[in-house]
Amino acid sequence: MSIVPASLSTLGTNPEVSALPLAVVLNPRSGREPLAQRLSVLRRLFAEAGRQHAFFMAERGADLPRQAALALGWAKARQGAVIAAGGDGTINAVVQTVLPSGLPFGVLPQGTFNYFGRAHGIPANTEQAARRLLQAQPRPIQVGLLNDRAFLVNASLGLYPRLLEDREAYKRHYGRNRIVALFAALATVLSRRGQWLIEIEQGGQRRSARTSTLFVGNNRLQLDQVGIEEGALLDQDRLAAVMVDPVGPLALLGLGLRGALGRLGGSDHVGSFGFRQLTVRPARGSDKARLKVAIDGEVMHMQTPLVFRVSPQPLRLLWDGQGPAS
């Protein structure tokens, strides 16, 4: 995820931002800190800053769209901002509602990986993140679109959505932490095989390709960590595509190791390129097939053709400009 280039839009500091009312959509299941502690900290800091505020609790993932809509209505009526408190999936769900409105949007990262927050140097600690939020100004942030759905970190099809489904199953049984996520990934790689024959259209040219995964990134931190050089293109109003050849389980484990070492882009089995718009169809069968995709960690089905593109409307992120975290 990257800041939109200054040539596209610039927003200077605005003293009125320091008085923005805050509508907080909170996922109680996210975060390592107890819910009561998080709420106590936020209420205290917002009160000390003289900020009008309200909390909208999403007890289940299915509640997020409704709570986000209620928060948006509350913020619109008070010319305020909407804040998402949760992991990348929670943040994405709230963005779907907030992006078309143009209202300022803030985040309190409380997930497992927090790629969006970390890319902007926003701490996972609730108090630290809230203090930074209270000093932030709205800045335009690039958003990716898969058909009509926004994504901030990545969107994909193939093996990656299956990996996410298996990871969630493991988390339900063994807890939500990175070690569990790692073992879930290993189990998926060793037990699943698959390849997809797809047709790609880019810049008026079509070609067929076999792949185990098509991964489209919009988060430079994530791409840089695994060694994909096209992450730099996110600063040029583009997205980055990564395609993995169909290979066996051992070769996939090797690719996972290369990614952990930041050398994935150097593999002969991995191709990557930047683009502004990319259309993907099944190379065989109906053009209107439904494919399983993953968007910012959430798995769903979408009807083809799948069109990946940069959103013409940026997100007005409340950010203090302190830079990405490692």
Rank of each mutant, 00 (worst) to 15 (best):
L306F: 01
L152W: 01
I200P: 00
S326F: 10
G111E: 06
L64K: 02
A150F: 01
L255H: 14
Q137I: 06
R132W: 02
H269F: 14
S9A: 04
L42K: 10
Q202C: 12
R131C: 06
A181W: 12
Q67D: 00
G86F: 02
L239A: 03
A68F: 11
R258G: 10
P104M: 00
E127S: 11
A68G: 10
A294I: 14
N14M: 12
G231M: 08
A23L: 02
L239E: 07
G254K: 05
E16L: 12
L239T: 10
E201F: 09
R66V: 12
S40E: 12
L291W: 08
P34S: 02
P34L: 00
V4P: 00
L255G: 15
S286G: 03
L45Y: 14
E48S: 11
P324Q: 09
R178A: 05
H120D: 07
N154G: 09
L291T: 10
P314S: 06
A69G: 04
I122F: 06
L190G: 06
A130S: 13
G12I: 12
R193K: 09
L264F: 11
V4A: 09
D63T: 09
I3L: 09
V247F: 08
L39E: 13
Q222R: 07
K76I: 12
A150C: 08
L108T: 04
F116C: 03
D287W: 13
S18W: 07
P123V: 11
G256A: 15
V293Q: 07
A283F: 12
R238C: 07
V293Y: 04
I295E: 01
H269R: 15
F273W: 14
A36P: 14
E33F: 02
S9K: 02
E199I: 05
G50V: 15
R44Y: 10
N219P: 12
R238L: 02
E168Q: 06
V247S: 07
P100A: 13
A36K: 14
T188L: 01
T90E: 13
A209F: 07
A77E: 05
G256C: 15
L99V: 00
V17N: 00
G194P: 01
T188W: 00
S286V: 01
Y174M: 06
A251E: 15
T90W: 05
M57G: 00
I83T: 11
Y170V: 04
S208G: 13
P314W: 03
S30Y: 04
Y170D: 08
A150T: 07
H120N: 11
Q79E: 06
R149E: 12
L8Y: 11
G266C: 01
L252F: 04
G231E: 03
L233G: 00
P5V: 10
L72F: 02
L39I: 15
S208K: 08
V270R: 00
P104Q: 03
L108A: 05
S212T: 15
T112A: 07
N147H: 13
L233V: 06
F308L: 03
P312C: 14
G102W: 00
G175Q: 05
M243P: 03
L291A: 03
L152I: 08
Y115F: 11
R220N: 03
N114H: 08
G265N: 09
R220S: 10
N154P: 06
L157T: 13
